[in-house]
Computed example of a mutant assay.
Amino acid sequence: MQWGARPVLDQVDLRMEPGQRLAVVGPSGAGKSTVLRLLAGLQLPTAGELRLFGEPQDYLRLDQRYPKDVRLVFQNPALLASLTVEENVGFLLMRLGRFKPSQIRERVMACLEAVGLHDVADQFPGQLSGGMQKRVSFARALVDDPDRDAEAMPLMLYDEPTAGLDPVACTRIEDLIVKTTAVANGCSVVVSHVHSTIERTAERVVLLYGGQFRWDGSIDEYRRSDNPYVQQFRTGNLHGPMQPTDH
């Protein structure tokens, strides 16, 4: 994967198993956001092959008639200020135009209940705290199309989901990542610099630096690894194989 002449991802090979919770870690500019954009179908690789659910992805998500079930939770909740919480969470179902308002409301309220926000459905995003807005974005990611194949497994993507939150709010969001992945019966990819988020949400960790995966292992292996990349990232040491970047 390249931006102009500069390689961003260089001969990376990543395979996920169904139901797995993966954390992609590394310093700023390592290529983590590019991994998410590729998985979300927002851009295509300049070389190599991308497969989602075993099928080649040759078109951008917006160009696909029936895109794969990939749900991205942005670092910024990206809620529409002029819509209520209920309308934000049910927005995509409303746009489909195939369901009665009562059907949409039932699904929306179930998702708000799952994130502990059933009592704010009529409020607007501006009336909520930053942590609550994040939880609304989780509820939005949970909403299912009633016509979705019951056997289909969504891919949940979380981009720095706890950035800028206090420790208590972080814990709540970290619990929600595990819970929403299970509720949706899917698998998840979390990009984060926050150590508690990495340790509490992931079963597997890959470390990305210089456009390449430098380490791959379980969360338990990550905690005790003596790999120099992992050790430097975990401790924040200025000395090690990873050097500062301007990107």
Rank of each mutant, 00 (worst) to 15 (best):
V85C: 05
V85N: 01
E86P: 07
E87A: 15
E87D: 14
E87K: 13
E87V: 09
V89Y: 04
V89P: 01
G90E: 02
G90T: 05
F91Y: 15
F91E: 13
L92H: 11
L92S: 14
L93W: 00
L93A: 05
L93K: 03
L93E: 03
L93M: 10
M94E: 15
M94K: 15
M94F: 12
M94P: 02
R95E: 15
R95Q: 13
R95T: 09
L96S: 02
R98K: 08
R98D: 09
F99C: 03
F99K: 05
F99Y: 15
F99Q: 00
K100F: 05
K100P: 01
P101D: 10
P101W: 09
P101A: 04
P101N: 08
S102L: 10
S102N: 13
S102M: 06
Q103R: 13
Q103S: 12
Q103V: 10
I104C: 04
I104Y: 02
I104P: 00
I104R: 06
R105G: 04
R105D: 10
R105C: 04
R105E: 04
E106L: 11
R107F: 08
V108H: 03
M109H: 06
M109K: 02
M109D: 09
A110T: 15
A110I: 11
A110S: 14
C111I: 04
C111A: 14
E113V: 05
E113T: 07
E113S: 08
A114I: 08
A114T: 13
V115G: 02
G116Y: 05
G116V: 06
L117S: 08
L117F: 10
L117R: 03
L117K: 03
H118T: 06
H118M: 07
D119M: 04
D119W: 00
V120H: 01
V120R: 07
V120S: 01
V120T: 09
A121D: 03
A121V: 06
A121C: 05
D122S: 13
D122T: 13
D122K: 10
Q123W: 09
F124P: 00
G126E: 15
G126N: 12
G126M: 14
G126F: 10
